[in-house]
Write a protein that binds this DNA or RNA. Structure first.
Length: 440
RNA sequence: CGGGGCGUAGCGCAGCCUGGUAGCGCACCUGUUUUGGGAACAGGGGGUCGCAAGUUCGAAUCUUGCCGCCCCGACCA
């Protein structure tokens, strides 16, 4: 993409109502625009990142054996009345009446609806286990939306639902998602720690939150330091036994504020105790027959007897992750994107558009990177050099290749690593190779 | 939902106390000169001062009501 043809409405000054780094930078970098409290337009740059995160989440779900589908945003109140949640959910749920005075709602989650799908089509234990998911916009009328997309009212969420014949089988599904989540967050370039969690209004008894540590986190979390640096499981056989992965990650203490046990925490060696602020980016639950029971979602077992399906649900806040990743990865100049989610793979800065050699070399680098699938952004705008560099720093692409007359006299361009700030001069071809290798 | 604050050009703000021609910086448009880390000069465009009612000869400014937004707390997948 050429900057001159792109739509990148940057803000030079920080909007006064943004107080956390990710919110400030998302506004300044032209990623989002607020429409009303907790509701945002995703501008091209933000949309690109959102879609990249979504795709990684999708790929890891598929690897784990979950099957993608799509349920509507607007739901009928009927299903929610069946499970009793229509009254239980409270004012957080946006209720709508259609022209026929039918009670509708904008879905804050989809347990009720997926259970209805399940009971309509699944009859036999032979069809189990099943894990179904979708990535869809949700609406929760938060009392106090804040921190930009991290606590919005409208948000994009991946939610998976598992169905098993027995509780023991359901635990296997739980472990699959537990494992998939570890891999997902690692691919996104963030360190998310699974922590014992409260189950909240969705209910159930087995639940973990995946939390990234950041100053601006909304809640206090406590864990063993070693959990933060633990390597992801990587390629595993999702049909095999994953319990060791779960055991390994839950052997060490980790809990959110609500579940915190100060006595247990005190048993951790002092230098390994970590108490910090955290951002919840994923939450997994096992809740058995909480919905399948009242909705009579049963299958025939091998004895021909109806058995209620045992369920779990597994959420990842896709839009929240955009903010969460920035919270975990930025400096005073702007965002520092992990390579896996960066909106563009590299920035090519033509420091002097109109200068024949600069034009030629920057175009060549741009074309070679594009051909290699790097998806570069070429800054071909006229304007001062300082503006170009600071703009690139703000939007946070992992690499910047600066092409200008001064360097070209020596036959070199300058490559800057956004994360380390390290700059080196090299030939245009070496620069291209360096970037391509970094993404290989 | 309790407490606090804010609403004036796209963004950041001043003006309000003490009523009298709506301002500044940045951004934007035109031109000239510049150009290796947020250039200079000259000219220009852009506003129902959140909305409504009231007081007044006259309201951005005073009064009342409403709406919107932000922060702290409580709450929260």
């Amino acid at each position: 993409m050429r900057l001159s043809r792109y739509f990148l409405p940057l803000l030079k000054e920080t909007p006064s109502d943004a107080t956390v780094a990710s919110h400030r930078y998302m506004l300044r970098a032209g990623m989002i625009r607020q429409n009303s409290a907790g509701i945002y337009t995703w501008l091209p740059l933000g949309h690109k990142v959102l879609k990249k995160i979504e795709q990684i989440v999708r790929e890891e779900q598929n690897k784990a054996g979950a099957i993608e589908m799509l349920m509507p945003t607007i739901q009928s109140a009927d299903l929610w009345k069946e499970t009793g949640r229509y009254d239980a959910y409270g004012p957080e749920m946006l209720r709508i009446t259609d022209r026929h005075e039918r009670e509708m709602l904008y879905g804050p989650t989809n347990e009720d609806m997926i259970t209805d799908v399940f009971r309509s089509f699944v009859r036999s234990y032979k069809d189990l286990p099943k894990m179904l998911y979708h990535i869809q916009w949700k609406f929760r009328d938060e009392r106090r939306p804040r921190f930009g997309v991290m606590r919005g009212r409208e948000f994009l969420m991946k939610d998976t639902y598992s169905f098993d014949l027995t509780e023991a089988d359901a635990v296997k599904s739980y472990n699959k998602m537990f494992t998939a989540y570890l891999n997902t967050f690692a691919r996104l370039g963030i360190k998310a720690v699974p922590m014992k969690a409260d189950t909240g209004p969705i209910g159930g008894d087995l639940s973990h939150e995946f939390v990234i540590l950041a100053e601006s986190g909304e809640s206090e979390v406590f864990c063993h330091r070693d959990l933060v640096e633990m390597a992801p499981p990587g390629d595993v056989d999702f049909d095999g036994d994953l319990s060791h992965i779960f055991e390994e990650r839950t052997a060490l203490y980790a809990a959110t504020e609500e579940m915190h046990d100060a006595e247990e925490f005190a048993k951790i060696p002092a230098d390994k105790q970590l108490s910090a602020r955290g951002i919840e980016v994923g939450h997994i639950f096992y809740f058995g027959d909480k919905y399948s029971g009242p909705m009579k979602a049963t299958v025939m077992d091998s004895d021909g007897k109806p058995q209620t399906a045992m369920m779990g649900s597994y959420g990842i806040g896709v839009s929240r992750l955009v903010g969460g990743i920035i919270e975990a990865s930025h400096d005073e100049n702007g965002i520092i994107w992990p390579k896996s989610v960066t909106p563009f793979g590299a920035g090519v800065l033509n420091l002097k558009p109109g200068h024949e050699e600069s034009d030629k070399v920057s175009e060549e680098i741009y074309n070679k990177l594009a051909a290699a699938g790097i998806d570069p952004l070429l800054d071909d705008e006229k304007g001062s050099i300082g503006v170009k560099f600071s703009r690139m720093d703000l939007i946070g692409l992992p690499f910047q290749i600066a092409v200008g007359p001064r360097g070209l006299k020596e036959g070199s361009v300058e490559v800057k690593d956004r994360a380390t700030g390290e700059k080196q001069n090299m030939s245009p071809d070496e620069a291209v190779t360096l970037v391509i290798k970094a993404y290989a």
